[in-house]
């Protein structure tokens, strides 16, 4: 009898030791998740807490499906992601290749390259809002002084230009993520295959295209995974620079969700949107992660 008790107590020990961790996880992750999921099935309004118990089933989701504004924002977010990631990749690759070539001052440049990442996105947003401002902005001022244009270009007012400006700010801030990771890749790259390729008959471009680039792709995919999560939840820069305007034409998913949830106080609807948007993030992460795994497979045991 005593033995059974002891053995049962022994079996409980790991559970007991894990309890604080489990409790914390439940409180910090599981509870908000379940709560927000629950609210997405109610007409919950921040101003009327009693609506929390009013279950309306999938009505929020059904309304979402026919909500043009939501889907436009969804499509715009995907486009924003695609453009920002590709531009950042190309610029980052270029910077990494250039820095890799220099022999003096490499460390200093690497540090300087990180500077944009050290600023708060909010401040970057404000800075670019000032730069792109059509009346007092430094960009228009410069263009006019140089005589390139004689009128104020409405950088943050015209829908396309506003989108461009936001992407520009985003790229300015985060290109170094790609540059740093790709530079790490370049440092890790064995020199022998490059020399073998040269002897095998490759010119500089072919060495880059056939040997260097495939080696760098896993590093690029790591950067893309990180950045796709980042960009898919883009809020701060957009909110500061255009606030989703003009007339909702730079509205991205999270500026829309924040507007619905906090400005209109329709938290139930906002949470339904958020769940659909999260799917988008998961999808991008999964896609890049699969690419990464595929690209890494052959690197595994190679010298």
């Amino acid at each position: 009898m005593a033995r059974i008790l002891t053995s049962r107590r022994a079996a409980l020990t790991p559970l007991l030791l894990l309890l604080p961790a489990i409790a914390t996880m439940l409180f910090v992750v599981a509870l908000p998740l379940v709560f927000s999921l629950w609210t997405s099935f109610t007409p919950y309004r921040l101003t009327r807490p009693d609506t929390l118990y009013d279950v309306i089933g999938l009505r929020n989701y059904i309304r979402l499906m026919s909500d043009a504004a939501f889907w436009v924002a969804f499509g715009r977010t995907v486009l924003f992601l695609a453009i920002a990631l590709n531009v950042e990749f190309l610029l980052g690759l270029g910077i990494a290749l250039l820095i890799n070539r220099i022999t003096w001052g490499q460390r200093g440049l690497r540090t300087i390259m990180m500077f944009p990442m050290m600023f708060s996105p909010i401040l970057v947003g404000f800075q670019f809002k000032f730069i792109f401002n059509d009346n007092i902005g430094i960009l228009n001022n410069a263009l006019q002084s140089l005589g390139l244009t004689d009128q104020a270009i409405p950088w943050l007012v015209d829908a396309r230009l506003a989108m461009f400006s936001i992407i520009f700010a985003e790229v300015w801030m985060s290109t170094s993520v790609f540059a740093i990771l790709l530079l790490a890749g370049l440092f890790a790259m064995p020199r022998d295959p490059l020399e073998a390729a040269k002897v095998d008959g490759c010119n500089a471009w072919q060495v880059f295209r056939h040997i260097m680039l495939p080696f760098l792709m896993p590093f690029a995919f790591i950067a893309m995974t990180i950045r796709s999560l980042d960009v898919a939840r883009a809020y701060d820069i957009v909110a500061v620079m255009t606030g989703g305007g003009p007339a909702g034409r730079t509205e991205l998913l999270w500026t829309l969700i924040a507007r619905v949830g906090y400005d209109n106080a329709r938290m139930g609807q906002a949470n339904a949107m958020a769940y659909v948007s999260t799917l988008l993030s998961v999808l991008f992460t999964w896609y890049f992660f699969r690419k990464l795994v595929a690209a890494r497979r052959y690197m595994g045991g190679a010298q």
Binding site: A196, A197, G201, F215, Q303
Partner: peptide, 30 residues
Amino acid sequence: LPPRKRNIAMVFQNYALYPHMTVRDNLGFG
């Protein structure tokens, strides 16, 4: 002349195979 114009082949100490290619592609790459 650059290496590619010398018509020589080289075998390296660390093999220097192209890690992302199959053996077939490694052999046929040149």
